[in-house]
Design a protein around this nucleic acid. Structure first.
Length: 521
DNA sequence: AAGCCTAGCGCC
DNA sequence: AGGGCGCTAGGCTT
């Protein structure tokens, strides 16, 4: 079922696939479709799937402040129960659920007894029955708020200068070639590589052929990975590595990408809340969460606007400090740079060691420099390191682990012999997943503050345009940059309270207001 | 031709 | 090195 939403002078018109039409006022629309919580002043829309319904509403100029997304909460609850959902939320939804938005509008009196009402009641009961109902309710609300923000960000789009993008491509690759042709700079590098390697023409784009050619030239390589090639001492390697970097730019974010994904000065990726098992978002279309630094100078605010770019500093180690209640690590994080604080504590000698060691602790490093540093960190921060160790042991025993707000890791696969891998996964899950919760709370807090400060069209006000795990970008009119910066700081402080219910760990965010994304850091 | 897999690399 | 992703190209199978 697809519903077309149109805003008209007399109200909001909804038309379904069969041409059946309903007309409601904006106020009635909200009241009819939303299930109003008894104690809440603001209506909360309860619907099957934000990603399915909200885009049409946004296109019609309707903004929704709060919702409960049945699909996403179903995912949370099924994850906790260790089960697979019996609902069909995908492309072929169960008719009774898929049609409910329209049913609510068409029959606003019949609130009780409708399927959406039933599923919602079941979900509320399941949350209430959970050992930590308050945390889980927060998670459900945050997940749902994220879904609203995701749809709004796609609607608004990332402001993108196609001219600047084209210019940087031309600078790096040479003029745009005819379709299917290799850009001049790539052509030159490939020729240079062939000449220096001296074994004839090499199919440089084919890893197996490339390995064979390198070995023919007497180089001991087992792959074409850049990190392995970089260790090889041969004059042909430098142009090869340069070729690989530029070829990557060309194929992943070149002219073809630009034509495919940027329209009318906006890049509109689909954000997928909860798309990753840990609760992180995924994306689809244009590789939004892998936007290379190389092209970020093409992300440019509109005339008279700014990009307010905010980044949570050392989010994951701070999350670990709060999760574990490690007072020494909380102390190390009192300043703007937690890694510098670890150095000041005397645990390690350099910031690089602090960073490497903490990443190793959270990812489960077993070898190399990172693993060597671990014992020293464990002496200085036994609670933090003990916390991830316990999560790892649980995973190795085949158990599941939880984030702070209750998102639960999946049951491990049956394969024998992968205990160590399971331990690394659960070790990281608790930190990455709780960091995702903090970021979601931050995002929702920023969104609420922007909402409360604005009326009217979404894109005429300061609005979120981009979110990558621990970083937010708001597109804001020049005159409102100050309040947006404040909102980003305030929401970060709130997020710590929302997720941890109070912690001595601080979560500083760096904020930069810039014309181009690339100028943010 | 379409779908799946792997290698490799971009991001956090 | 070690966690989580998406995407592209090449190369395979169907």
């Amino acid at each position: 079922m697809h519903i077309v939403v149109e805003r008209r002078p007399e109200g909001i018109a909804l038309t379904d696939d069969s041409g059946h039409q309903t007309l409601v006022s904006e106020g009635d629309f909200s009241r009819a479709v939303a299930v109003r919580e008894a104690a809440a002043e603001r209506p909360r829309w309860v619907w099957t799937d934000t990603a399915k319904w909200y885009p049409a509403l946004l296109a019609a100029g309707v903004r929704i402040q709060r919702c409960h997304d049945l699909r996403l909460v179903d995912g949370l609850l099924c994850g906790i129960a260790g089960q697979v959902s019996h609902h069909e939320w995908g492309s072929a939804p169960r008719p009774a659920l898929a049609d409910t938005l329209f049913d609510f509008v068409a029959a606003p009196d019949a609130v009780t007894g409708l399927v959406v009402g039933e599923v919602w009641a079941q979900q509320r009961a399941a949350i209430a029955a959970h050992p930590a109902p308050l945390q889980l309710a927060v998670l459900a609300a945050a997940e749902s708020a994220g879904a609203l923000a995701a749809a709004e960000m796609q609607y608004a789009g990332v402001p993108w200068s196609a001219d600047a993008h084209d210019a940087l491509l031309t600078e790096a690759l040479g003029p745009r070639p005819a379709s299917g042709q290799r850009p001049a700079h790539l052509e030159a590098l490939a020729a240079q590589f062939d000449a220096l390697l001296g074994v004839g023409r090499v199919q440089i784009d084919s890893p197996p052929e490339l390995v064979k050619a390198l070995r023919r030239a007497g180089l001991e390589v087992s792959s074409t990975r850049s990190s392995e090639l970089a260790r090889v001492d041969h004059p042909a390697i430098e142009p090869l590595l340069r070729y690989k970097t530029l070829s990557r730019l060309h194929s992943s974010n070149g002219w073809h990408w630009l034509e495919e994904w940027v329209r009318h000065g906006r890049f509109r990726p689909t954000f997928i809340p909860g798309g990753v098992v840990t609760g992180r978002w995924a994306s689809a279309g244009g590789g939004a969460l892998q936007l290379p630094r190389q092209v970020r100078s093409a992300v440019q605010a509109d005339e008279g606007w700014r990009l307010v770019v905010a980044d949570a500093a050392q989010l994951e180690p701070r999350i670990l400090a709060a999760l574990s209640g490690d007072a020494a690590m909380a102390q190390a994080g009192r300043g703007a740079d937690l890694y510098a604080g670890i150095v000041s504590s005397g645990a390690v000698a350099t910031r690089e060691q602090a960073k490497l060691g903490m990443l190793g602790a959270m990812y489960g490093a077993t070898r190399g420099v990172s693993a060597q540093i671990l014992p020293r960190l464990a002496r200085s921060f036994p609670d933090a390191l003990g916390f991830v160790e316990r999560a790892a042991r649980a995973g190795e025993r085949g158990e599941r682990v939880q984030t702070r707000l209750g998102r639960t890791s999946p049951w491990p696969t049956e394969r024998v012999g992968d205990e160590a891998a399971r331990g690394r996964f659960t070790r990281n899950f608790v930190v990455q997943g709780t960091a995702a919760e903090w970021a979601l709370a931050w995002l929702a807090g920023v969104r609420n503050r922007l909402w409360n400060a604005s009326a009217g069209s979404l894109t005429e006000q300061p609005h979120l345009v981009f979110f990558v795990h621990d970083e937010l970008v708001v597109h804001a009119p020049l005159g409102r940059v100050g309040e947006v910066e404040q909102a980003l700081h305030d929401a970060a402080a709130d997020a710590a309270r929302v997720v941890f219910g109070g912690t001595s760990v601080t979560f500083p965010v760096t904020v930069a207001s810039v014309q181009r994304y690339s100028d943010a850091k």
